[in-house]
Design a protein around this nucleic acid. Structure first.
Lengths: 200, 200
DNA sequence: CCATCAACCTGAGGCAACCTCAGGATAATT
DNA sequence: AATTATCCTGAGGTTGCCTCAGGTTGATGG
């Protein structure tokens, strides 16, 4: 039990840091073209490094995925705070959801990993997912407090809708992309308008 | 180009038929416990058959998945016709969607395969997916004609929503299952009620 | 009952990817 | 310059995929 298991730290030796960065860059490229199950050996050789070195820095595939997506998801969390400061809570929520869907479907297979990490601590991405959960829950609560979103919607359901949309987008990555429409339909299902009260 | 490529037919020799059935049974079990990427060698040995025999009957993994899910999906198509004969088109559509979600998430990885097959002919499951597409489109059209579903919803969008729901269900297979709620939210987003007109 | 043969079965083996680990190299430190 | 913790390498064990040459067998007609 060492502090934060599976979370790769930036190494201190110069060559270590160099290789760490090279692997990460190669991984990002590979994930984007081949999905989350890209060959680790390819990534290593693309980074000009032996396979053992990759495993030294990233003991599991999940830890590599986590490192490759950390920045983007951190931005998403930061974005939530900025959006929350805006005037319209519903706009904030919908805009954030739109951006979240894009981030969740950065590459094929990512949503699945994130969805599992969300409720499974001990997963590299769990900490980040928990942070996003808080961000999403805050925006949701605000929109509900303003009476613009059905009050019975839970954060968990929000993320189900979100990841469903991201999955659809990820599937259709090449060709028809139904996700904007998907999200719009979902949003119309959960929002409240004066001329359109909740059923029941 | 031989008639129906990739579609495994029941063999005629007695031992062939026996093995075909044994493999199929083993595959169903394996898919259900390990997902669509279960080990084919495990399936073969579980069926008491050499690996080559499995490949003889099912040249690709996709063809095995197709055979393993054919019955269930055929039932779903038949169910659509029976439901269409009912009094309420909206009830028919929603009930069919509910059942479709269950079938699509029979095992982990199935929705992904079906979603790809839907618009990619030359895939073993494409024929079945096309049939389901027709069924769904018919039910949708009827519900729209009755003024109970927003008229701008396309069958493609319907299946996006459907497979999104199935994917969420598949993810949560063990533990919290958000799919009934997911579908309900989606349905409320696409249906029309007198006291709740479409926005814009 | 037998001969024939297409259909069927087997499992070794090549390939790719995963992951580990013993041994060697090297950057930082003193 | 010596020390040492950190880092790197790549061979090799393991698993799963898929093919194919060669052997076996169920069906068929005589």
């Amino acid at each position: 039990m060492d502090g934060k298991p599976y979370i790769a730290r930036r190494p201190k030796r110069a060559d270590g840091r160099r290789n760490y960065d090279a692997i990460l860059a190669a991984a990002r490229k590979a994930f984007e073209t081949s999905g989350a199950d890209a060959s680790l050996e390819d990534i290593a050789s693309q980074a000009g490094v032996a396979i053992g070195t990759l495993y030294r820095h990233f003991p599991t595939r999940a830890s590599l995925v986590e490192a490759a997506t950390r920045d983007g998801l951190e931005n998403l969390v930061a974005r939530a705070e900025r959006l929350a400061a805006g005037p319209d809570p519903l706009d904030a929520l919908t805009e954030w959801m739109r951006e979240a869907v894009v981030h969740f479907s950065t590459f094929r297979g990512l949503v699945g990993i994130l969805a599992r990490s969300m409720y499974d601590e001990g997963t590299p991405s769990h900490a980040m997912c928990a942070a996003m959960h808080r961000s999403g829950a805050d925006l949701l609560r605000a929109a509900q407090a303003a009476g613009r979103v059905r009050p019975d919607l839970t954060p968990e359901e929000l993320f189900d809708l979100l990841s469903g949309a991201a999955w659809v987008r990820e599937q259709a990555a090449s060709g028809r992309d139904g996700s904007p429409r998907f999200l719009r339909l979902v949003l119309e299902g959960i929002t409240i308008r004066e001329d359109r009260p909740l059923p029941h």
